[in-house]
Design a protein around this nucleic acid. Structure first.
Lengths: 207, 207
DNA sequence: GTCTATAATTCGATAGAC
DNA sequence: GTCTATCGAATTATAGAC
């Protein structure tokens, strides 16, 4: 039997351990940031000793890089699903709203990995950031294309630069991880819709 | 003659050195972040040896805390000036636009200190963040009051929570420090106005 | 594969000469 | 007030037993 065809709960132990380490690292990185996340704490969360990590990874930065990369992938997947559900015939305005709701929901509910990316990317070493430049640029470009598409179909204003507004929008959404708490009185769907509505439709006048 | 009454260029040397250290620290903190900013580099920028810093400050965190505090003060002052120039009779909408332009301009042109605060606050030790909680909360509250005022006079929509939108707006503005370069082809006044217009009036429709 | 022990490095902080 | 020299703590990374 080919090992790659084993059922999920029968995957090689080494593979599962590696996954467990990445999950532990995402947890610690999201809560502490890059510099304050020690291998001792990551290992503790993964129920191991720090030295044992080196059987599975070459360095701390190798772990961090993979966590951040997975974080970008998760966010991209969540947005793709939402856009796919919205359909190609939706307006640029409607597709942008859907993407905002999907991303805000994803970073607050689903993924330690995406939270780790948001919190740690700027703080991480230059080599790590360079290695992630391609997927991150592609992530940003996705938002740029979304906005440009709305500008072409007339559902979004075209007197602003899509590249700048995309970065602004991403930063505004990312700020949610700084104050959102799962046990608060706000439900995330309401917050996500408030965000989407405000960023897309603005603050002017009464709704 | 009372030392406190000396002309600016005659202030005690110790006072000037302290100021030089803070300026050097703001520079390094804004460029490298909290963890990567070493006392050796801060001292080098201030043209001193690392050990000499301890004659003027008790610890690295004491330096960082003062830099971040000054950063908050600078931002507050820039916004106050702009609001004062706009006048009390301006609408909430107009005052919010003026504040956004003033803040975006300030963080891109004026102040290493404010940039250091934006980049380092979340990364800095818990004690530092606690010590700065009051001025920072007051900074956020200023934006909340600005938005609430616009909601009362009807120039801003009132179906969103001012506290949440204020945080979102601050995060969006802060993101400018991540990509703005003084030598680029964009002029900051245009970017600041694009920001203000998009955040306040939104992305919908054609302008 | 995981553990224990420790090497190697970095950095904040201190002591004492000048 | 500043310098040189060094301590001490923390942390990444390695070595070798099991």
């Amino acid at each position: 039997m080919n090992p790659t065809q084993l059922a999920p709960d029968r995957i090689r132990k080494g593979e599962r351990t590696r996954t467990r380490i990445l999950g532990a690292a995402a947890d610690v990185l999201a809560r502490k940031g890059y510099a304050a996340a020690t291998l001792t704490e990551i290992a503790a969360v993964a129920k191991m000793q720090a030295g044992s990590l080196y059987y599975h990874f070459d360095s701390k930065d190798a772990i961090v890089e993979e966590v951040l990369r997975v974080g970008i992938d998760h966010a991209r997947d969540a947005i793709r699903s939402a856009l796919s559900a919205a359909g190609d015939d939706a307006s640029g305005h409607g597709r942008l709203m859907a993407a905002v709701v999907a991303y805000v929901t994803a970073i607050t509910i689903d993924s330690d990995f995406t939270q780790a990316n948001i919190r740690c990317f700027e703080e991480s070493p230059e080599d790590t950031r360079e290695n992630l430049a391609v997927p991150l640029r592609e992530f940003v470009n996705g938002w740029v294309r979304l906005i440009e598409s709305g500008q072409r179909d007339g559902s979004l204003r075209n007197d602003v630069e899509a590249r700048i507004i995309a970065r602004m929008t991403i930063a505004a959404m990312n700020s949610v991880v700084g104050w959102w708490r799962h046990d608060g009185e706000l439900n995330i769907d309401g917050v996500a819709r408030m965000f989407a509505s405000t960023m897309v439709d603005g603050l002017s006048g009464n709704a």
